[in-house]
Amino acid sequence: MVFYGRTCRMSFDEEFATMSIKLPDGKAMRDSQIFSAGLNNVVTTEREFDELVAKSLPELLDRATGQTKRFLRETNQWGDDITHEKMALRWGYELVERFVVFGRTEVPCRPFFLLDSLIAKSFSQPDPLCYHKELLTPVGRFLDGLASRAVVSRDALIALFYHFYGFSQAHVVKLLGFGQAESQRVYKNFERWRQSGWQRTMNETGLSVSEIEVLEQELRTRPDHLNHEVDRLMPILQSHYRKSEPEHYPCLSEQKWGQLFHDDYGHDYRVWHLAFCRNCFLEVADRRQAEVSSGLKPQVNLQIHPLKKGGVLALFGGDRGGRHHGNTRAQRLSRTSA
């Protein structure tokens, strides 16, 4: 394992016990020891907590990563390769991020103990990680990163329609039966996704530039093969991340979908559920084929990068999800759109 450019390999216990002192120079090591002692001591104020955490982020990340590795090993999900290392780092990062935010509300506390309890609580829940061996490939990690982000980011959620099916804003708005206001609301921050959200997601997922380039190359040379792979992996992803949907968002029958569109309600439901449920998405797409301008049955059409140009002009007219807006001129849908 590597810490600050220094390569060493050790057992898990050694790794966990000494992870905070494997630093490249003596000064850093001494500082780390000081911080370790501080993290084991009681922190009494929020300010003290913030200062100590800001200085001890490497140790906290290593500790959370080590706990994640232990969980993966104990559940026979560990492989000694860079992909698993990255996965452990990614989950360690998410755990520390929560710790940084939640911990302020728990003072006075001992930071290390609080982090351990937070980690234990997270891993004690059923199926905490979306671990599947086939999701460890570059394309699997790409899809996993997108879906994982879409659970917490509405920007990423609406972007799934583009990355999975190649649907632009106009297509999505028509397919989901959104009116002008809904379209504006949903896509108002899409530029943010294009500018920083996608890149942040890739960075946090651990996909390097070279891996993304490889994916793009494969998409150019063998698009059918890659789309077939995406088509195969989507059910695995969606079955895991759909549990992030609200409880009252189950799959609906064709009749109920029709009623929902006709009565023009449940807009969040449409975005949430159809982004994460391919079967319902295809069913709705079949039903609303006339609304979608392409008129073709939607298929998996992987897109690596976000849509280059935001603020797509969408024409609205006639029946849009059962509500008439009576305005057929082009609309600028997002303040941040280019």
Binding site: L57, L61, I82, E85, Y93, S208
Partner: peptide, 22 residues
């Protein structure tokens, strides 16, 4: 194992954590 890549990834995550409050 491509250690520089892993190292970069870790450094990036630490930067993100550091930037989170802002």
């Amino acid at each position: 194992m491509e250690t520089p890549e892993l190292n970069d990834y870790r450094a990036h995550l630490l930067d993100a954590l550091d930037d989170q409050p802002r």
